[in-house]
C-alpha cells in the first residue's frame, strides 16, 4: 500500500477505533477504582499480583495478591461482564498480607489489584492474562 494522504487518513481512523473501544469498556472498572480509592493517587509499587501469562481455561485462573502493610486489597478483572472479583480484608491475626484464590476470566484482559495501605495510601498492580477459553458460559 502506498503511503498516500488518503491511506494515512484511513489508517488513522482504524487506530482510533481500535484504541477507543477498550477505553469505553473499561469505564465501569474505572468507576469502581474511583469508588474504592476516592480518587486518590495510586503508587505503582507496593502490591504484587501474581497471575499466569497464559491461562488455558478462563474458568479457573489462579491468582495471588501480596501487599505489605495493606489493610484491604481489591481485585478487578476489567474485561469481565462484572469487573469486581474479590476484596480481601486482613484482620489483626493475618501473618502476611497475602492471599491466593482462583478466578474466572471472560477473555484476554487486564487484571488489576489495588491495595489500601494502613496509612491510607493506595497502590496498584496490573497484569495482562491471555485466556484461551473464556470462563463466562455463552
Amino acid at each position: 500500500m502506498e503511503l498516500t494522504r488518503r491511506n494515512v487518513m484511513i489508517m488513522g481512523t482504524g487506530a482510533m477505533v481500535a484504541f477507543g473501544l477498550p477505553m469505553a469498556a473499561n469505564a465501569a472498572g474505572e468507576d469502581l477504582i474511583e469508588a474504592f480509592t476516592g480518587g486518590a493517587e495510586m503508587a505503582e509499587s507496593g502490591v504484587t499480583l501474581t497471575a499466569p501469562e497464559i491461562a488455558e481455561n478462563g474458568n479457573t485462573v489462579p491468582i495471588e495478591v501480596d501487599a505489605d502493610g495493606a489493610s484491604e486489597i481489591m481485585v478487578l478483572a476489567l474485561g469481565n461482564p462484572t469487573p469486581p472479583v474479590a476484596t480481601f480484608k486482613f484482620g489483626p491475626l493475618a501473618a502476611s498480607h497475602t492471599a491466593s484464590t482462583r478466578i474466572r476470566l471472560a477473555g484476554t484482559q487486564d487484571v488489576v489489584a489495588i491495595a489500601k495501605m494502613k496509612d491510607g495510601s493506595f497502590a496498584k498492580a496490573t497484569k495482562t492474562v491471555k485466556v484461551t477459553i473464556g470462563g463466562c458460559g455463552g
Binding site: 462484572t82 484482620g91 501473618a95
Partner: peptide
C-alpha cells in the same frame, strides 16, 4: 476466618470467583 474471636481475613466474593472457591492465606 477468625481465631478465638479475632479476625484473620474477611473476603468479599463476586461472581468472578471460580466454582468451588479456594483460598490460601497465612495466619499468626
Amino acid at each position: 476466618c477468625d481465631f478465638n474471636g479475632e479476625n484473620v481475613i474477611d473476603v468479599t466474593l463476586e461472581p468472578a470467583i471460580s466454582t468451588n472457591p479456594f483460598f490460601e492465606f497465612e495466619a499468626t
